[in-house]
Design a protein around this nucleic acid. Structure first.
Lengths: 341, 341
DNA sequence: CGCTAGCATGTTAGCGCTAACATTGTTGTA
DNA sequence: TACAACAATGTTAGCGCTAACATGCTAGCG
C-alpha cells in the first residue's frame, strides 16, 4: 500500500495562464485563445483576459506552449564565423525578415568545423525549430541525414549546388574565374592567389579552383599561398609580405576576401609601393571598406543582404504552406573594377 | 454521458526517451539520467541506453526537458545593433564563453528602441532563459521591473552606472573627456563633435557630454553636429562635408566612432586635404580599420572582447551558485594617439 | 547476523500550455 | 416552427521530459 504524500514541484513562481483565466472568470483555453487567436474570442472577453494578464504581470511560458503545440517560433541559423562581415550581413538580412514575421533566431557558430555544425543541428532540432538556415552545402554524413529527415524547411545559403532542400547563393567557381580573367585581361601574367585555411573556408577554395582553371587555359601555372587567419587586415599585411618573399616576381595578388586585400593594400601604400604598378591587388566581397581606399579596390560584389532576405522570404513561404516552385536561387555577383588592378 | 473516443495528438514522430528506454530495457528516468547525469547510472546500463539512442536516431526534446526542469540553458543577449562591429565583438566574446559552458545564445536586436527591448525581454523570459545580458542601463519602466523581478542573473554591459544586478563596462563620459583633453593639449581650439542619432545612441551622447564639459572648462563653446546613419564610412564622409560647410573654421573633428572617423579620414585624403594639418580627426573604439590608414587614427581603445568574456564569466559564476562579490567591473579604456591629431 | 549506508533503478506526478473534441446559445432560413 | 450553421466557450487529455520520493540490493561493520 503506497502512501500518497502529495508531491510538489517547484516550477517558476510566475503567474500561469490558469491564474489569469481564473481572474478573468474564463477557462484557460479561452485565455490562451485571447492571446493566440484573438478572432475566436469575443471582444469583451478578450479585454477581460488581457486586463487580467496585465494585472498579474503575466509572461507567457513559451516552453510549455511549444511543447503542447510542437511548434516553436525558432529559426536556427548556423554560420561558420562571426568574425567575417559577410556572415554578419547575411544574419542581418535573415533577422530583419524573420523577426518581423514573429520568428526568433537561434544563432550558432561552427568556427568552420562541420562536426560542430552537426552538434548544433541536433541542439536546434531539440528545440523544435521551425526551420534551419545553414551556410554551405558540406555537412558530416550524420548531419546530412538529420537535415534530410527532419521534416522542416532547410535552407543552405552562400553557395549554389546540389542542395538538400532550399538553396540561395552564388557560384564561387565562376566568381574565381571572373576575377582571374579580369587580371589576365589587364595584362598581369604572374598572379598569386592568397587565401587562409582553405580546407575550412572551402568557398575560398572553390574560387581558387575557378582562378586556377582560367590560368591553366592561358598556360600559366597557378600559384597559391595560404595564411592562418581567415579575414583580418593584419593578416592581409602578412600576406603581402609573404608574396614579396616567396614570389618576388608576382605582379598581382588575388585575395580570398576584401579584409585581406585591404590590409595588403593599405600596407603597400604605407611601404610606398605603387598599386597597381608595383603590384595589383584584388579582393572578394565588395565590403564598403575597400571602396574607400585610394586606389579603390578591385573586387567582386556579392549581394549578402539579398542572400539573407531572399533566404528568409523563401523559408517563410514554405512555413506558410505555399508551394515553392523554385528551390534554388542564384543571386549572382558583379565584378567591381577599382584602381587597384 | 460522455463517450470516450480516445484522442490523438500529433507530436513530432521523432523517437522519444520512452522508446529508447524500452529498447534498452530500462525505465525512462534511467535513460534520462544516462544523458544528463551519467555518474548516477552504471557503465553497462549507460552503454545500452546510448546504443539504443544511436540506433533509433534519438534527438532529445529540449523543449520538454526545459518545461519539466524549468531550466533552459539559454542566455538571452540583447544588443541595439548588428551593424556596429563593437557589438559583434562583444557577442563573440559572450558566445565563445557561454557555448563552451554548454549554454545557447538567444540573440535579440533592438535597433536602439527600448520598447523593442522590453518585448524581447518578455519573449526571452518566456523561453525560461537562464540569464539575460543586455547592452546599456536604460530601459522602459516596465522592462526595468521585469528585469528586477525575474529572479535570474541580469548583466548590463557597455556602460558603467547604476545597474540592476551585474554590470561590466566603461565610463563613457570619462572617455569623452579624455579625447577632448587630448585635442586641447594638441592645441586645437575649434573642435566639433560629430555623432549620429544621439538620442538613440546615448552612449555617444555621454561621450559628448564629457567632451563638452572639458571644452567649457577651457572657455570654448562646444559644437555638435548630428548625422542620420549610426556607423558607416559613407556617413563619415558626409560628416566631413557638413563640417566643412557648417563650421568652415573647425580645426578638429571628434567623431562618435571609428567608422565615421575613418570614412572622414579616407575621404579627406582623397580630397587632398592634409590630416591633421588642415583638420584633425579622432574616433572612438579602436577598430583595426583605423590603425591601418595613413595617418593612423587617433582613437580610444575599448576592450570589447574583454567586455563579452568578463560578462559571460561573471554570469556563469552566478549560475554555478557562487556568491559574487563584485557586481560591477570597470574594463577601462585607453587613448591611442595616432597621427591624425 | 542484524543493521546501516549508499548505490542503481523504478514509480508517480506533474511542468504550463494547447489540440481535439464537446457543448451551449444565437441566428438565419425554408 | 424546425433545424442547420455558426460563434463563443468549455472539458479532457496529453506534449516528452524530469523532480521527488520509493525500493531493492550489495557491501561494510561491530
Amino acid at each position: 500500500m503506497s502512501k500518497h504524500t502529495p508531491r510538489h514541484r517547484k516550477g517558476t513562481d510566475q503567474p500561469t495562464l490558469a491564474q489569469v483565466a481564473e481572474m478573468a472568470g474564463v477557462s484557460s483555453i479561452t485565455a490562451s485563445r485571447a492571446l493566440n487567436s484573438p478572432e475566436r474570442v469575443s471582444d469583451t472577453t478578450r479585454q477581460r483576459v488581457l486586463d487580467a494578464m496585465d494585472h498579474l504581470g503575466y509572461v507567457p511560458n513559451l516552453v510549455a506552449g511549444s511543447l503542447a503545440s510542437s511548434r516553436s517560433r525558432f529559426i536556427a541559423v548556423i554560420v561558420p564565423s562571426l568574425a567575417n562581415a559577410v556572415f554578419i550581413e547575411v544574419i542581418k538580412g535573415l533577422q530583419s525578415t524573420f523577426e518581423s514575421a514573429g520568428y526568433q533566431i537561434l544563432l550558432g557558430n561552427t568556427d568552420y568545423d562541420i562536426e560542430r555544425e552537426h552538434q548544433l543541428v541536433r541542439t536546434f532540432l531539440g528545440w523544435s525549430c521551425s526551420a534551419l538556415v545553414t551556410a554551405g552545402l558540406r555537412h558530416t554524413h550524420a548531419c546530412h541525414k538529420l537535415l534530410k529527415d527532419c521534416d522542416r524547411p532547410v535552407m543552405e545559403v552562400m553557395e549554389l549546388g546540389e542542395a538538400l532542400d532550399l538553396n540561395v547563393g552564388l557560384d564561387h567557381v565562376a566568381a574565381g574565374r571572373t576575377m582571374a580573367r579580369h587580371l589576365l585581361d589587364k595584362g598581369y601574367r604572374r598572379p598569386v592567389y592568397v587565401g587562409a585555411r582553405l580546407d575550412d573556408d572551402y568557398r575560398a577554395q572553390l574560387r581558387y579552383s575557378g582562378h586556377a582553371e582560367v590560368l591553366r587555359e592561358a598556360d600559366i601555372a597557378p600559384l597559391v599561398l595560404e595564411l592562418d587567419q581567415l579575414g583580418s587586415l593584419e593578416e592581409g599585411m602578412k600576406g603581402l609580405e609573404r608574396v614579396r618573399n616567396e614570389h618576388p616576381d608576382a605582379d598581382a595578388i588575388h585575395f580570398a576576401n576584401d579584409d585581406l586585400a585591404t590590409g595588403a593594400l593599405l600596407h603597400a601604400l604605407r611601404l610606398g609601393m605603387r598599386v597597381p604598378d608595383d603590384i595589383a591587388i584584388a579582393g572578394f566581397n565588395g565590403l564598403p571598406l575597400g571602396q574607400f581606399t585610394t586606389p579603390r579596390l578591385t573586387t567582386i560584389q556579392s549581394p549578402r543582404d539579398t542572400i539573407g532576405r531572399l533566404a528568409a522570404k523563401e523559408v517563410l513561404s514554405r512555413l506558410e504552406g505555399k508551394r515553392v516552385t523554385r528551390r534554388q536561387h542564384d543571386v549572382g555577383f558583379e565584378l567591381v573594377v577599382g584602381n587597384s588592378t
